[in-house]
Design a protein around this nucleic acid. Structure first.
Lengths: 358, 358
DNA sequence: ATGAAAGCGCTAACAA
DNA sequence: TTGTTAGCGCTTTCAT
């Protein structure tokens, strides 16, 4: 085990020839304390020389603060295959450090109880909570929020009676899904399939599909449940779902994929089937992950700005933790559709001016 | 802020009609203590009813333990584009929880001092350290290891005088790089390019390139520095590097990409140049990320088993933290080459039996 | 301007 | 078998 060479404030005090109080005052820059410049210098030098860092546990015990944010990732197994979460993670970690907070990663696997994070809160390991990937069945969160524990959600959610206490950073998945689908409709497609990016109990999944359906219905097209398949974050699930869709005759001429990884898998299935993208089947993805421009063909996708989402979420949480609640409860970011080759819009612009008929 | 509704062991004791000591004994299952079954039941019930969770800071303060692992990710910005780290992360988080540890994420950005993790150690926030992505210039680590602070590295590294104290989970990047390159040589290629996956100061980058060079020289081929470009984790950097390589006449007929994301970008450049994969240019990647089978064409790649690496690393660290050092200092995992379409081996097997001449 | 002392919630040696 | 008590290292009020 580690050699016990812990440096305490007592030792710093002795070396500087002052009391522990003075050390604390100097190191924490306590406002009301009038420390002579000379003393202050001596203390700082002693601390420096000894490599003193205050014991975190002792400090938390007395201050009641841990300066730590709990980051809850439900269904963390998706970290293995999803490209969106890592970007968010990076941004959250980066911004947290800037604000002086550490990040404690709490991944919730399917098997264990979903409320594992309650222990973090009750055990006072964290000062605030950031929740990714919320599912419909998360249950203890409202209670926490009711008690004013600082919580920021990624993705919109509200509970009855807690409107003013709920904070989130969000995008409008329904609108984005609708826009993506409408884009395909405008290109002349009528048989448009959809593969969700995750199981049905995720809010985001429901939103995007609702947008898909709304767009169809707004255009007077039939919503055909047989054209909707469930994916599970992975390219593999997108591949399998697309293979099923390709069994249909006539096959769909367009796909709105629930995310870009799903789209990648689906495109592999389309290629393998000997069909061309976008000539035979047009594809639109969601998330606009960094590799989207390098897919074959480059993928048209919905931009969701994970870095910005992470940054804003941390700023909100930081505000809540320091007793300065953000002005807005919900910050909604825009989700523009980035047009590349996979949807066929560029193709069409080049070759013809009338909508393609298929 | 949070309503102060903290439940202390004192309250549990009162409710159960016993002393705090008894509560502590029961809840921690202290061996030597003979608590009556009746008392034990009462205490457990009281704790349950109050939703008692021991204050982590108080417990750490007295026990000297935090049950927290620090996970250091240098150059965390790569989280945005790399697909290998998230898998490792998942595995580390998952296994840590199984062993009863929490994970504190410490991302080190380029700008800040690289030794930020020292504060975690000195401040006794963590009981052990896991280090990803080590670069040649990380400096304070050996000192920590010398003092017997539990550290496990992902990727081999040794320091003079610390051989017996250094623990790691590793793969042999040189051997894997050599194998990948040799595979291409065996397919008849002589102008084989290499794009590194990260800057030169990463050990893993150096290893893979060394393997590439060794394979060339072992086959009597010339090592041409002009065929080696530096990538930076992203598909974008792979794309740019490949575009440069394609300026050469004659262009290389094969590419060993430093990782799969680099390969994806490079393949996009090849397609855009109107060349076929593998007929015109064969490609081999590294990491075998989950999307590799769904690229166009499916990517031949070196398998590195991130989930296994993460699991083993946590088990080693857990052993170190509990005073049971692992039997082996270095655990080396196999890195088989997974043959898919992008290297042309399957193509060749189908069409001809003699090596292609190019 | 600096120091003494109390106490944060818990564990564990020692008493009873 | 259970209770009393002394710290763990730090912050912070109150004296000096």
């Amino acid at each position: 085990m580690m050699e016990k060479r812990r440096v305490t404030s007592q030792e710093v005090a002795k070396r500087a020839g002052v009391s522990r109080t003075t050390v604390s005052f100097v190191l924490n820059d306590v406002p009301g304390s009038n420390i002579s410049a000379e003393t202050r210098r001596r203390v700082l030098r002693a601390a420096e020389e000894l490599g003193y860092v205050p014991n975190a546990a002792a400090r938390s015990l007395v201050s009641g603060q841990t300066l730590t944010i709990g980051l809850i990732i439900s269904h963390a197994e998706h970290l293995q295959v999803d490209a969106f979460i890592p970007q968010l993670l990076y941004s959250i970690s980066y911004t947290s450090h800037q604000h002086g907070y550490r990040v404690l990663l709490e991944t919730v696997e399917d098997v264990s109880k979903p409320d594992a994070y309650l222990e973090l809160v009750r055990g006072q390991r964290i000062d605030g909570l950031m929740v990714l990937n919320m599912r419909s069945d998360d249950s203890q969160l409202p209670e926490l929020i009711r008690r004013n524990f600082p919580v920021v959600l990624l993705g919109f959610r509200e509970w009855p009676g807690l409107k003013s206490k709920t904070f989130s950073v969000e995008t409008d998945g329904t609108e984005a899904g609708s826009r993506a689908t409408t884009h395909l409709i405008a290109l002349g497609h009528t048989r448009i399939a959809h593969i969700t990016f995750s199981p049905e109990n995720y809010y985001a999944t429901q939103d995007r599909r609702r947008g898909y359906r709304k767009a169809l219905e707004a255009a007077g097209l039939n919503y055909d449940p047989a054209l909707v398949k469930l994916g599970n974050y992975s390219a593999a699930s997108g591949y399998e779902a697309m293979k099923e869709l390709l069994q249909r005759k006539p096959y769909p001429t367009a796909l709105f994929a629930g995310n870009d990884t799903i789209a990648l898998g689906a495109m592999a299935a389309i290629h393998q089937h000997g069909l061309r993208i976008p000539e035979d089947i047009a594809v639109v993805g969601y998330d606009d992950i960094p590799t989207a421009p390098y897919m074959v063909p480059p993928l048209t996708s919905v931009q969701v700005a994970p870095l910005q989402q992470g940054r804003i979420a941390v700023e909100m949480l930081s505000g809540l933790m320091s007793g300065k609640p953000p002005a807005q409860n919900h910050i909604r970011l825009e989700t523009p559709l980035v047009i590349r080759e996979s949807c066929g819009a560029k193709l069409e612009a080049k070759t013809a001016s009338k909508p393609l008929q298929r």
